[in-house]
Design a protein around this nucleic acid. Sequence first.
DNA 1: CTGAAAGCGCTTACAG
DNA 2: CTGAAAGCGCTTACAG
Lengths: 346, 346
Amino acid sequence: MKNSKMKSEEIARIAGVSRSTVSRVINNYSNVPAETRDKVMKVIRDYNYFPSVSAQVLAGKPVRTLGLFLIEPGNVSSDSLTNMLLVSVIENASELGYYILTNIIRDITNTDTVSSVKEMFIQNRIDGGIFIGAAIREPLIDELTAEGYIVGVFDQRQLEYSQPNRIVANFNNDSGMKQSLAYLTGLGHTRIGVINGDMKRLSGQTKYEGFQKAMRMCNLDINPDWVLPGDFHERGGYVAMNTLLNKTSDLPTAIIAANDSVAFGAIRAIKEHGMNVPEDMSIIGFDDHLLSEKYHPALTTIRIDFNEMLRKLTTDVIVKIEKGTTDVIEITIECSLIVRDSCRRI
Amino acid sequence: MKNSKMKSEEIARIAGVSRSTVSRVINNYSNVPAETRDKVMKVIRDYNYFPSVSAQVLAGKPVRTLGLFLIEPGNVSSDSLTNMLLVSVIENASELGYYILTNIIRDITNTDTVSSVKEMFIQNRIDGGIFIGAAIREPLIDELTAEGYIVGVFDQRQLEYSQPNRIVANFNNDSGMKQSLAYLTGLGHTRIGVINGDMKRLSGQTKYEGFQKAMRMCNLDINPDWVLPGDFHERGGYVAMNTLLNKTSDLPTAIIAANDSVAFGAIRAIKEHGMNVPEDMSIIGFDDHLLSEKYHPALTTIRIDFNEMLRKLTTDVIVKIEKGTTDVIEITIECSLIVRDSCRRI
DNA sequence: CTGAAAGCGCTTACAG
DNA sequence: CTGAAAGCGCTTACAG
């Protein structure tokens, strides 16, 4: 049961073959007769031998490790999303035999941070990286892809010139917004407003663009007073709704929030103003947050499958690392309306 | 700004020295004159050179990576603790120049899992590991320490024979329990019960032992009907309290819960029985969970500093890796009562 | 089908 | 103070 000092040479000696053959067995070369393979495998198992990664990597094999970079300025997202996201990436990677080196990036503009991220790639600690929380354009990511490193990014699109080594993943926010508006219109709403997300993020932009398009399709006018800035956080939704309620009595009958946290904030503000949801205002969210179902009122929202998105992104990054194909990959995940109690018929 | 194909040999050539000297500069050897050092450093910076870890490790240096093993059977703890914990470990390690390879262990008895964890150590992917969620005795951890690997474990104590390469960290649960009981006694309670945590975990045991000791010190008798089994989860607290309330009308006036989640569950059950906290029963928790302050009633509890514990544990593991000292380390973190609204004077 | 040998990019006694 | 050389544990053309 010893193993620590086991090396391929020892295995070779015991099995009565050369190191070359041991290596061939480990790397599943086809030109090894079953008999030899079995003999070697037995010794490997008997001695609980695992090859040293460093030696393998130095000899040109992948490290089988991915860097997961969570860009979270300051406030450690205390909600369960980060958790879920991490677990999802780890487990998908693990199924493909890959490990995850996790990094929290508080400030992506900080020189030390930037250089330490690049260091991981250059030192060959990781075969590729996955970025969550990136802005539409991140110089760091651009540099990395320009150098040829393989990177998967949630919430970005391909550059003007598509890069096979930059894999992007998004939800179909356009479709989500259209569903929200279709539903509200069906309920008879025509006075509809929106609380936006962070417009530095692609999803912030595409959601708003989706809103505009959908309003046009429904033949509704956008009232600029009802287009409120936000940031994807509860606090932002609260502030936005407060501003609206304090400014005017000419209110929309329904508000589409950039995500569920924003919706929670908006509802809190509405309640504090002595009004009710959906009686006085209908609210529709985006994400289908864990809490949304349990919230009061239970939140009508657009469900996205974060887990599926990460599974695809992780898998595609790994396949790209191993096969090195030159196809350009853009993952888009559909989303769908979940009707609950936060919208009423007009 | 190129770097990918940079190797120490290139740096040496450009700086006009040998690879040996470049290596000495990188590893901060003292016998390099400032002038030479500066010359070499300049080239290193100019070319954005980072040595290959694989080569360094193969030559005997540490990988500067720690494995973080989260033992979480099935239910991905959706509360924010895992999150906080991860971030805490990552940031502390990062300050010391170490990376974190995260692993979720769903079933620590599973052979494949066990062997993949050992593989990480044997392959030399990590210099050491940190385990969270371990039972009092874990064969896997015992094997690892027996092999000489450096491991930090939360919620375990040293074995009969102390191991310098097993660093254990705990909260002073004894002190916490004593504070809880002192407070309740001060309020005039004598009829005091307890909902236990998971007794397979050391903290489950030490908390209950602390309770017993403290009761003795306060000259109070333990009513076996008021000692309820639990599991550190909300659900467990709920079930325990329901059982108690349904079984008898001879109720305690106060309950100490193994942690705040358990307390939340217990309070939920009490409310469902049409009773109130603290009017009909006082409840005291343990942890000072993020929600405890905001809960209704705000929960009186014992605050523990998870972040401090992990900071010490991570630091000690890294120091042990680098210095290889033979001292036996047992970290104990103090805890303290936070009085809020869930207990009343009798 | 299989072994001997070169090579991966570092570090570190050793010798000077 | 510094260079030449051996060694770390693998993989993979190359030759047979």
